[in-house]
Design a protein around this nucleic acid. Structure first.
Length: 876
RNA sequence: GCGAAAGUGGCGGAACUGGUAGACGCGCUGGCCUUAGGAGCCAGUGGGGCAACCCGUGAGAGUUCGAGUCUCUUCUUUCGCACCA
């Protein structure tokens, strides 16, 4: 063993060993309990970033720990390889997305391997490979057959200059990112997946996901958004019928809305419809002011956050509906806050009992009518009314329903509506069907053919996959597939005549909605999954960013159920246990020349000045010594120039230090702040560990393995700490899934070993056990250095193949324990008592203490609280 | 706007089930060693006070023998909002 810790050599040796022994190639074995550990696969953006390192360090630590517990572990890796950045890179550099993506994959695979993650590369997949997306297409055709996939129109962001559909990300403040043109909303036909058919099941099953973070379950439940309410039809008045003409689809019925507060029906003073509502278009015909407003609403982005924060504006159509119970005319307004994509594209306006309607009515001087009197609130319609808006109470001004409590009024009014055929109780979901059509090149082609005679025809299974041509170059103006005649021209599978291929591709969320199933049988050429999925699934531990808490996880839960209903898999829930990892942040530094734009400097180039107490007092740029401004913490990004390349870190300190820092600096679920000094500190720790093992092992092998009898003094304390550490680390990893405290525990153990100076063979044996335990406990987190140190400690077998040891109960026995003594809840003393001391002896021990006596005084305690083994609280 | 979370020393964090606030690490201070290094070792480090002690977990209230932890109000920050992945 050499004295110096040299990470490069250590890591090469360990990785060579794992590779030659195929340590991480997983095989199905029905006789062994499996553990499927999955970290979300990366988008191949070019280089690994710190978020990846963190994600995979967590997953690998868990996988290695479970492997040492004797489980049959599968930890695969793949590439979420379709997506917009490849097209952006193509526009910027003129490189076809396929080449760019594949080069990135090759580079990043090298980086992952250098970090020494225990991955089964034999199952590697990339979603841009026809072997994979073939099954997206096959599954899509099956879903279309079953009515899960269907076609309807949807709203997209349209850039009128580039004449192209933009992603939300490409819309900046309502303008196109490249052209700067004002974005318009445009309706186009698209394919949707009927996720709403599974809404109830997806919601109910959340209760069974007890190993998911509570907040993720809450967010999903709110997203699915079950609400009980009532459909209400407001019959059209004569003026509206005249505008709609006889052709309108529901002209003879009326305007349908959904409400959760039908008890406020008598408070309706207006109706609000979306600018995209058919009636809005019809009413615009002879009304220039309205037409201008509808036109204005068509501009701007489709994002809900934008729509919801926009100033609530509206325009009266001058048309009316009739109140379903009173027959009174009600004005119809077009309002910019009503979404066509949610519900019916129309809402009833009850200003006195809804926040948004209240604001809208005030702005447009629409009358308000109070119809619910909450208990103990003055009726008034000024600002003071705001807290009462959504309250329930007793119905007033509601005809025959006045005097009923809100719940009773809801039931009675719904019944009255139903009797007239103008309404019915219904459950409404916030969840909308999933639009999967994208007018983009770098994605999975939707396998459809448009034939003039036969209409829309799916591509027959035998002709799948529809291969995406890989040599096209997007230029920012529309989908290059649409201009590729070689792709578009085809023959109709049904009539044999010339036809045109669909050029829309699928949302990349489709790709990631079932990749975890494919890993179980990635070499299966005849089906998307096979019987091996039954062995490996569900994923026992899924790890990924909190930003995926809703969409990706919900789509995957939906997709798995669809495959279940097709008989392809038996499970419904793909992920048993979920860990949502926090983001990686770094400091942001900049200078702002007067009148100029901010120039950002990478924190690595910045020198921070401290005062004598260690407080940060300023920062300057290393190169010129002039000061720079500190702008706080932010996620690592190019625009803020605060990224840290993991490659540099690995080259400087090695993979083990990179992993150790990521696991030590924060618990997995919290955000993590990058710190160069922190990483150095972890490197220092690994060096100390190395030195400790070196100093111990140069003295030669142990003369004999110890037979542990009862020990005394320092040796007993050392063994106690050793086995306490083993217990703590196991609990931290297996139960709590936290690594920072596990690592801290080993640091404490190593600090104690350094202070433990007992000479002789007994001392050496105790020290040996402590060091062995430290190496064992750290090995899931820093596997390379531990692999080598394990051999240095005299073992023949590789550490990865060792079984995780049990703590020795004998070493954990303590004869006395320290009790905290409080007087009136304030800490006053500590006393040692026998381990199993009863209340009487604990109490008398506490009262013997001089400080305690001083605070208790001469009077008898009013009450004494005793928590065995922990504390005595004397109340006086 | 709606939904979800988080606020603890100079900094990252620990305190898991209501029971010792600040483990572990970084930074900083002093010292030692030295073929001088961004190395290693030792000691100190929440604030106040000579001390006994007192004060301290974003702010404000409450429950309790006891609150960082539970309840309510409030402020700030972060994440998601359906075409970024």
């Amino acid at each position: 063993m050499q004295e110096r810790y040299e990470p490069a050599a250590v890591e090469r040796a360990a990785q060579d060993y794992w590779n030659t022994h195929a340590s991480f190639v997983a095989r199905e074995d029905s006789g062994r309990q499996k553990f499927y550990c999955l970290s979300m696969f990366p988008y191949p953006s070019g280089r690994l970033h710190m978020g990846h390192v963190r994600n995979y360090a967590i997953g690998d630590a868990l996988a290695r720990y479970m492997r040492m517990q004797g489980l049959n572990v599968l930890q695969p890796m793949g590439w979420d390889a379709f997506g917009l950045p490849a097209e952006n890179a193509a526009i910027a550099n003129g490189v076809p997305p396929a080449r760019w993506t594949r080069e990135n994959i090759a580079y990043m695979k090298n980086q992952l391997q250098a970090l020494g993650f225990g991955l089964d590369w034999s199952r590697e997949l990339a979603t841009c490979d026809p072997d994979y997306y073939c099954w997206n297409q096959w599954l899509f055709v099956r879903m279309r057959e079953r009515g899960i996939a269907y076609k309807k129109t949807g709203v997209v962001n349209w850039d009128p200059v580039d004449k192209t559909v933009l992603a939300n990300e490409q819309v900046i403040d309502g303008h196109g990112w490249r052209t700067g043109a004002l974005i318009e909303k445009r309706e186009i036909p698209m394919y949707y997946l009927r996720i709403t058919a599974y809404a109830a099941e997806l919601l109910d099953a959340l209760q069974g996901l007890t190993e998911w973070p509570e907040r993720v379950r809450t967010m999903q439940a709110n997203w699915i958004g079950r609400s009980e309410g009532c459909d209400v039809t407001f019959p059209y008045a004569q003026d509206t019928l005249a505008v709609l003409g006889g052709a309108a689809h529901d002209a003879n019925r009326g305007m349908k809305v959904f409400t959760t507060r039908v008890d406020t029906l008598f408070g309706v003073t207006f109706m609000a419809i979306s600018a995209e509502h058919p009636l809005a278009t019809a009413a615009s015909a002879g009304n220039p002011a309205l037409a201008a407003f509808v036109e204005e609403c068509r501009r701007g982005s489709t994002m809900e956050a934008d729509v919801a924060t926009v100033e609530k504006r509206g325009q009266n159509t001058g048309l009316h509906v009739r109140h379903p119970l009173t027959g009174e005319p009600v004005e119809i307004w077009v309002a910019n806050y009503v979404l066509m994509s949610y519900g019916e594209g129309a809402v009833m306006g009850v200003p006195a009992h809804d926040d948004r309607d209240f604001e809208f009515a005030r702005r447009h001087q629409i009358p308000m009518r109070v119809v619910v009197q909450p208990a103990g609130v003055e009726v008034g319609l000024g600002d003071e009314w705001a807290p009462a808006l959504s309250a329930t109470g007793v119905s007033v001004n509601s005809g025959e329903f006045s005097g009923l409590a809100s719940a009773a009024a809801t039931a009675a009014i719904a019944a009255a509506l139903e009797q007239r055929g103008l309404g019915a109780k219904r459950v409404q979901w916030r969840l909308r069907d999933w639009g999967i059509s994208r007018q983009r090149y770098w994605g999975c082609p939707i396998p459809l053919i448009h034939c003039e005679r036969c209409g829309e025809v799916p591509v027959p299974d035998a002709d799948l996959p529809v291969r995406l041509p890989e040599d096209l170059l997007p230029d920012g103006s529309g989908n290059p597939l649409a201009k590729c005649e070689a792709f578009v021209r085809c023959t109709c599978p049904s009539c044999g005549q010339g036809a045109r291929r669909e050029t829309d591709t699928m949302d990349t969320f489709v790709d990631s909605s079932w990749y975890f199933l494919r890993f179980a049988s990635s070499d299966q050429a005849g089906a998307p999954v096979d019987a091996r999925a039954q062995y490996w699934l569900p994923v026992d531990q899924y790890i990924g960013g909190i930003e995926h808490a809703i969409l990706h996880l919900l789509y995957s839960r939906f997709w798995t159920r669809v495959m279940r209903d097709m008989g392809l898999v038996e499970l419904a829930e793909p992920f048993s246990k979920l860990l949502t990892q926090g983001m990686v942040l770094n400091q942001i530094y900049f200078r702002q020349p007067s009148g100029g734009r901010r120039v950002y400097f990478n924190p690595a180039e910045v020198l921070v000045q401290h005062d004598a107490a260690g407080k940060r007092i300023g920062a300057s740029l290393q190169s010129d010594g002039q000061s720079v401004e500190y702008a706080g913490l932010g996620t690592m990004s190019k625009s803020k120039n605060n990224g840290v390349d993991p490659q540099t870190l690995v080259e400087k300190y090695g993979a083990d230090t990179a992993r150790l820092f990521m696991l030590f600096a924060a618990p997995p679920e919290q955000t993590l702040e990058w710190s160069d000094e922190g990483a150095q500190g972890q490197y220092r720790f690994l060096r100390r560990l190395w030195k400790a093992v070196y100093d111990h092992s140069v003295a030669g092998p142990l003369s004999q393995r110890a037979h542990w009898g009862p020990l005394q003094g320092a040796a007993a304390r050392m063994r106690l700490l050793t086995h306490q550490t083993l217990k703590r680390v196991g609990d931290d990893i297996a139960r709590r899934r936290v690594f920072n405290t596990a690592i801290a525990a080993v640091m404490e153990l190593l600090n104690a070993v350094a202070r433990y100076e007992e000479p002789g063979e007994l001392g050496r044996a105790v020290r040996h056990e402590a060091l062995e335990t430290a190496v064992m406990c750290l090995s899931p987190m820093v596997p390379h250095v531990c692999h080598v140190l394990w051999f240095c400690l005299g073992h023949e077998r590789a550490l990865i193949d060792e079984a995780w040891p049990q703590p020795d109960p004998l070493a954990l026995i303590q004869e006395t324990v320290e009790l905290v003594v409080q007087v009136n809840g304030k800490l006053r003393a500590r006393v040692r008592v026998a381990a199993g001391a009863d209340e009487a002896s604990a109490r008398s021990a506490a009262l013997e203490d001089s400080t305690v006596r001083r605070f208790v005084g001469e009077t008898a305690p009013r009450r004494v609280i005793y928590v065995p083994g922990k504390l005595v609280n004397i109340v006086v």
